[in-house]
Design a protein around this nucleic acid. Structure first.
Lengths: 159, 159
DNA sequence: CGCAATCTTGACGAAAAAATAATGATTTGA
DNA sequence: TCAAATCATTATTTTTTCGTCAAGATTGCG
């Protein structure tokens, strides 16, 4: 249960754009440099984000990428959904909601756990905007503390 | 951000044992059959769970696996931690908490999000026991509804 | 126009994860 | 004691994911 490389870096690239002054843009080599990844890799990520309508790209000299929508309106849940290889539901109906796709016919004890977990994560991510990730981290911390309110006893380690 | 195959199936195997009458046991072929996976695969999973102390195994004819600890005492967070290929923190200090391992020196906008997300998931999983996964799903649903209490607007889809 | 900077896109190769195979060790019971 | 059943452990293969490459398309500028 962890964020994938594609999810993480795609998100990071968007954050770089969001951190720019109003209307600013970055080229692929610039983004790659800022994130410590290859230009080719950045290109693929930005292509996905472009297709999904998060960024606007202009070709040619003086080209680059800029945010298509205001950072305040972009929720992390949307971003993750686009970057995730959403080939979910291959080995069990737990993911897709389609029954009859595994030996349990989608009816087993852990099904509600998996679905609940996904909903939990999506819910948390839907409450964070790209704008909140720029500069100050305080609002994000505050958000997680609220969601955690029931018990906050566990250390943030690998899950 | 999804549960891995190893996590899911390992959890499923444990649920099968927990569903047994007091003191019951299952062999590898039986577990494999129940979960629709190969015996070899089940063997690997059970080996991990055995090493971690969740199950007890006996070899030879009449051998098999049984729960080592009461299902009421086993929290999902423990299980996931064992089944996760916890080779986290390979591409960014976000996971390990070790700084200086990426271009951001572990100090970037998305770091609190990743850490917060892991904590959120771990917190949720720590509130569910293996026993709750057997038979009735109601307690699990109730738990997630509580955690969701802030907003429950999102459909449980792929995240 | 023609070159250089830039994004686009599909194909390819490397790395990680998962599944399988293979071999070995232990126990039971005839 | 020997054979069958069963778990233990490591190695190999397969699949999936990730990253790179290369050829193409578009734009700006001299």
């Amino acid at each position: 249960m962890k964020i994938s490389a594609q999810e993480e870096y795609g998100l990071r690239c968007l954050v770089q754009l969001a951190a720019l002054p109003e209307g600013g843009s970055l080229t692929l080599p610039q983004i790659a440099e800022l994130e410590g990844i290859s230009t080719a890799n950045a290109g693929k990520l930005m292509w996905l984000l472009n297709k999904a309508g998060f960024v606007h790209s202009t070709r040619g000299t003086k080209g680059g990428y800029s945010l298509e929508r205001p950072a305040e309106d972009i929720r992390l849940s949307e971003i993750i959904k686009v970057l995730d290889e959403d080939v979910l539901g291959k080995h069990c109906g737990s993911y897709t909601g389609v029954r009859d796709s595994c030996v349990h016919n989608g009816d087993c004890g852990i099904r509600p756990v998996i679905i609940g977990l996904h909903a939990l994560v999506e819910n948390a991510l839907s409450q964070i905007t790209l704008a909140q990730l720029v500069g100050s981290e305080r609002s994000v911390d505050a958000m997680f503390n609220r969601v955690h309110s029931i018990h906050r006893t566990v250390e943030p380690q690998g899950v």
